[in-house]
Design a protein around this nucleic acid. Sequence first.
DNA 1: GAGCACTGC
Length: 747
Amino acid sequence: MSDATKKRKRSSESPAAPAPAPAPAANPYLAHMQADGPARAVPAGPGALKFRETTVKQAEDLEEGSTNPFTGEAFSEQYRRILKQRRNLPVHKQREEFLKLMHKNQVLVLVGETGSGKTTQIPQFLVYDEQPQQTGMMIACTQPRRVAAMSVAKRVADEMDVKLGQQVGYSIRFEDCTSQSTLLKYMTDGMLLREAMIDPQLSRYSTIILDEAHERTLATDILMGLIKRICRSRPDLKVVVMSATLDAEKFQKYFDNAPLMVVPGRKFPVEIYYTPEPERDYLEASIRTVLQIHTCEDPGDILLFLTGEEEIEEACRKIKAEADALAASAPSQVGDVKVVPLYSSLPPAQQQRIFEDAPPARPGRPAGRKIVVSTNIAETSLTIDGIVYVIDPGFSKQNVYNPRIRVSSLLVSPISKASAQQRAGRAGRTRPGKCFRLYTEKAFMKDLQEQTYPEILRSELGSIVLQLKKLKVDDLVHFDFMDAPAPETMMRALEQLNYLGALDDEGDLTKLGEIMAEFPLEPQLSKMVITSPRFKCSNEMVSIIAMLSAPNPFMRPNDQRKQADAAKSQFDDAQGDHLTLLHVYNAFVENEESPKWCFNNYLNARVLKGAVNIRRQLVRLMNRLNLPMVSPDAPDGPNYDRAIRKALTAGNFMHVAHLEKNGLYLTSKDNQVVMLHPSCCLASKPEWVTYHEYVLTKKNYVRTCTAISPEWLLELAPEYYDLDNFPECESKRVLKRLQAKRQSGRK
DNA sequence: GAGCACTGC
């Protein structure tokens, strides 16, 4: 992030650019504001390339020359070998069409299916057309995921015969692999959004490519809105919106009827089969289908999509057992199987198993088969080559936010047509494949929605609204969202930010809000961190927040639950889970971040390392914002945990539950009946708790809970706990009594 | 007395 503030200097070290920078701009950020407009002439050199006026011939001559125009070094053998492959990619045939469209238009929508080469080639076409080393402005290409940004950058660095991090680099959270000489930068969409907060015109970029736009991540959606605005004030900015599906029309319309370019993919055909009748039990039907394929179809690996960890582990056990039984009863007809589960919380070493080979054929027996049982992670994030059969039961878990009760929940829901197509496509990556859909064709046509709802329609918007306010988008109602979120969700976010003190009653960003927006955290958490110095516990709070931002660090293998629970209890704090997390963090650091220590204590070392990383980033921000890192005077004193719990309440006062006389908790104001999650370390039920999250599963649970004192609510959040505007309930009566006592005490 | 689809800053 700080990179955006660095001064960039472009030297004329490249041989293709022997002369100094063309425009007398002192500040390369402002180059686009030069009076001579966007079509600045690049000084005549070999090829005499003109900014955005180049031809395919010119580029190809340079690519086929002996010297790399960007480094001045001789092209390597590897480079030439890759160049041959690149020329065979489908997108290469349309290089001329692409350049023409880019020269004539500000925004281009590009649809390219998998295997078209769009992600690697399009940015390079632009590098040759724009010669960024001469303009001082970069080309950015966004990706929804970190690994993609990293691996594509690596590939393209090889293709351009440059060192990764030099002319081609990437930028993701925790890692900025770019330099002064970077011309092409792959980055996560979230990272570009962060940069926009420092540089609202995105003035370091001449062209921005939004890749995988069809995924409609929160960050991509916000970026599209911002970029559409920036386009008006920066006619020199060019934009390419790349999508894998044919829903391009929506993007075209949104960008004022931008032209469309379609690049064919390179895939093998996939035959689709539907069930004649709806399946009652998709899990049972899935297992049956796996076994049918295994016994009746030609060799080739199987990918089965299920919804979650538990379901996947169960399916794996059953498939393995039944396939082994079949093989035992008919050894000459049934081959061996290797059943591999895949979901994100699986440690990387186990995730790697999906790339292992299928079991070899034993003498006199059919070939073995690999069967991967996966969540949606295999739909976009991970690609497994060699899959020939896909089984799609038609469901996935989706996060849905309900603004009425202010709760997000994970629901098993039917997938969209786009998602079903994506799943089927996974069968045709290396050769023709088959996809078995466990629903009827009629259901596919009539019941499935076209696209999955974009994230922005399913999320809580607190931090998004905060970020937009920071980006000076004041009128959120009229912000040009591609899909506008529900007004009620927007209102909830504004209300929440107002209670937190980030927005004033006019809806304008306050000083506190400005600072809150700097943190890569949910607003409540930012508030806690920022307030914590006041309670002399910022050191501790930053650790807790880092732990809350990381996934669950506690391991609980099915066959060692007792031991795992015992290990966890060593860290338990009588006052609650937030403090327990603090103890775990501290113990991890005291034990020198030892993976062995983690293993012995049923903790996930990878997750804890992640927390250390997040903490470091937060401390850097605290320092930059002049927020002191302090600890309570007496770490063993009675006020130690009190200070921390009070600081927690300062941000979390909207996540409070009160124990009613009937033994149930009710959430403050919303009056939802909730229970402490079974993983909660609180032995007794405190009358008041603050919780980190509310999870809706079979029951309503609040998870990560800590005991608090009701006085703090009245003291720290008087607007939210304004008892004249409070629904009638037991907690209101308790608070009223308390308030009366406070007032009489003051007299 | 039970869970955590997947990302991202």
